[in-house]
């Protein structure tokens, strides 16, 4: 057991898998010698060799396509797209190829690749280093979408992704790489050190895909979030002074629908929180499912708190960012109904 931040936990997941399975490969732009712009692959090339962890051309299409070819052969590539904002050149390969290979070949071929990519705002990255594009992946049949919110989950989930026989997009909330940022700018910067989920086993373990985590039990309302917004939601609960149940989805597809239904049927109220733009966001999907399946248990209208429908703005980062204030306001409205 060691104390790890989220980057160290992600690094450890790849380290463990490179050690355990010779079919595992890691590559991406700057991911080899340098260890990645966020240092997620630091030391892996040095430890495991040039052929196991290497640099890739600045060609996201090629990175994903090459990984598909390798994965179809039986290897388990875990590739890094430097920022989720750069994933679009590889999007066609993920959607038209990786996602459908098993289906169109009736299981003759499949592509067990993992695409890792830092996503989300809060680092003054402007519109090219802050996006949250998860919903354009959850919309696609045949891929899984995973987003951790703690070091422990990040490592366990990433190992599950690498071992999974389906293609997985693993979005890393970069704002909480180094600490559980909860959106309160007036607070001193917090590292992961004091957080229980920074205690991470050194070796192999998994966190299963498709299982949500109940971060806080409560009876007043259910808050559904993932990534950085889990921590923002916890701060909002404190600010609003309510006894909320906070669910961290961890996996968006496949969704742990029972965890959501059970909680909402208990509390009768729900707020859904994500950083991504609201229109056609994943929150709309969750809201629809709750409405279809828990309608008679609802005491009030469900609210979504999401990014505004603008590109990610640089100067207005903290006006745009979904902070605990906006979430607390939504909580109060939902409780007042």
């Amino acid at each position: 057991m060691a104390n790890m931040n989220m980057l160290q936990a992600i690094n450890s997941a790849m380290d463990v898998m490179l050690e355990r399975n010779p079919d595992v490969l890691v590559f991406g732009q700057d991911a080899g010698y340098f260890g990645g712009v966020f240092r997620a692959t630091e030391g892996l090339q040095h430890k495991h060799g040039l052929h196991r962890c290497f640099d890739a051309p600045i060609a996201e299409l090629g990175i994903v396509a090459a990984a598909i070819g390798m994965a179809a052969q039986g290897l388990r590539p875990c590739v890094e797209i430097q920022f989720a904002d750069y994933i679009y050149p590889g999007y066609d390969q993920i959607v038209s190829e990786a996602a459908r290979l098993r289906y169109r070949s009736a299981g003759d071929f499949f592509a067990p690749l993992t695409v890792r990519s830092p996503y989300g705002g809060g680092i003054f990255g402007g519109q090219t280093h802050s996006q949250s594009p998860e919903a354009i992946f959850t919309h696609v049949a045949g891929i899984k979408t995973v987003i951790p919110s703690t070091p422990y989950d990040a490592k366990g989930l990433l190992i599950s992704c690498i071992e999974d026989d389906d293609p997985v997009v693993f979005f890393e909330p970069k704002r909480i790489y180094n600490g559980p940022f909860d959106g309160r700018l007036d607070k001193p910067v917090e590292t992961w050190a004091k957080h229980a989920a920074s205690q991470v086993p050194d070796g192999y373990y998994t966190v299963p895909l498709g299982k949500a985590a109940t971060i806080r039990e409560g009876k007043d309302l259910t808050i559904i979030a993932y990534g950085t917004m889990v921590h923002v939601s916890m701060a909002a609960v404190e600010m609003a002074g309510v006894d909320a149940e906070v669910i961290d989805l961890r996996t968006l597809v496949p969704l742990d629908i029972e965890a959501i239904y059970t909680s909402v049927r208990k509390t009768g109220r729900c707020v859904i929180v994500h950083e991504a733009t609201g229109t056609s966001g994943y929150g709309g999907e969750i809201l629809s499912l709750i409405q279809e399946n828990c309608f008679h248990h609802l005491e009030s209208a469900i609210e979504r708190v999401t990014g505004f429908d603008t590109p990610y703005p640089h100067a207005f980062e903290w006006d745009y960012f979904v902070g605990p204030g906006r979430v607390a306001d939504a909580i109060r409205r939902v409780m007042a109904d």
Binding site: A65, A66, L75
Partner: peptide
């Protein structure tokens, strides 16, 4: 699609598989 005959699943989207063949070849070399 016929893995046992060395025939990769044909996509139907043009051009998308040419770089996958490179990935497969990289796998052979690996």
């Amino acid at each position: 699609s016929a893995r046992d005959y060395g025939f990769f699943s044909a996509s139907g989207n043009v051009g998308t598989q040419i770089c996958q063949s490179v990935g497969w070849a990289m796998g052979c070399a690996y």
